[in-house]
Computed example of a mutant assay.
Amino acid sequence: MAARIDSLVTAGSFSLDGGTWDLENNVWIVGDETECIVIDAAHDPEAILAAVGSRTLLGIYCTHAHNDHIGAVADVQSLTQAPAYLHPADDMLWKTVYPNAAHLPLENGQHISVAGTELAVIHTPGHSPGAVCFYAAELGTLFSGDTLFHGGPGATGRSYSDFPTIIESIATRLLTLPAETIVLTGHGESTTIGDEAPELDAWVARGY
């Protein structure tokens, strides 16, 4: 039996380049009745732990290291002892939140197993250098973090981000997935690869 996907929305703030903004984040939990993983431990450790419940938390998998996506990692770890995983190209962002805490590395092509289901790590730099997505082919689902949203790519107007890079990541590594793939995003509503693919040229033309 394939793993199921649970979700919750947590609220907090994002800070970078001297600014702070209030926002809501999607937290995704993949697993079954006995074990699970958390994708992006954002803002609210109590809500995340309540959603995990009595299950064994195998790991906290970070799509990138902006503080709104990793702010609850330490508190969740303190009660579960679950390891945190992050692409090392985002280490400089991680250290702004956790200067003395380590994480385990993610790399492109790596596979994550949970509840009999595999998720593939896809490195998609652009929103940040170490941004990744997680693709669960068996579930027909992509967890896109802040790389791809309903209506366009993630923001690239701040430090360590780059618009041409995120467009290349999306075009070559995400839009090649099956059109029916559900895209579960880091913020806001979900979409599909098929709904977003036709818009690529328009994003490039208007610069986002």
Rank of each mutant, 00 (worst) to 15 (best):
V38N: 04
D44G: 10
I60F: 06
P83I: 00
A41R: 02
W94F: 12
V52F: 06
A84L: 00
N100S: 14
D90A: 03
L58H: 01
H69P: 03
V97K: 14
H64V: 00
W94L: 07
H87Q: 11
A89L: 15
Q77F: 03
L119S: 00
P88W: 01
E46N: 12
I70H: 00
C36R: 08
Q77N: 02
D40C: 11
A115P: 10
T96W: 07
A47W: 02
E118L: 11
A72N: 01
A89N: 04
E35G: 03
T63K: 04
C36T: 13
I70P: 01
A51R: 13
T117F: 03
K95N: 10
A42Q: 12
E107S: 14
S78D: 13
V76L: 12
N67Y: 10
A41P: 07
V52Y: 04
E46A: 15
Q81I: 06
E46K: 12
T63E: 11
V38H: 11
L119Y: 04
V73M: 03
Y61P: 03
A51I: 06
V52T: 07
V73N: 05
L106N: 06
A115C: 09
I48G: 05
D90M: 05
Y85E: 08
V114L: 08
I37C: 03
S78K: 12
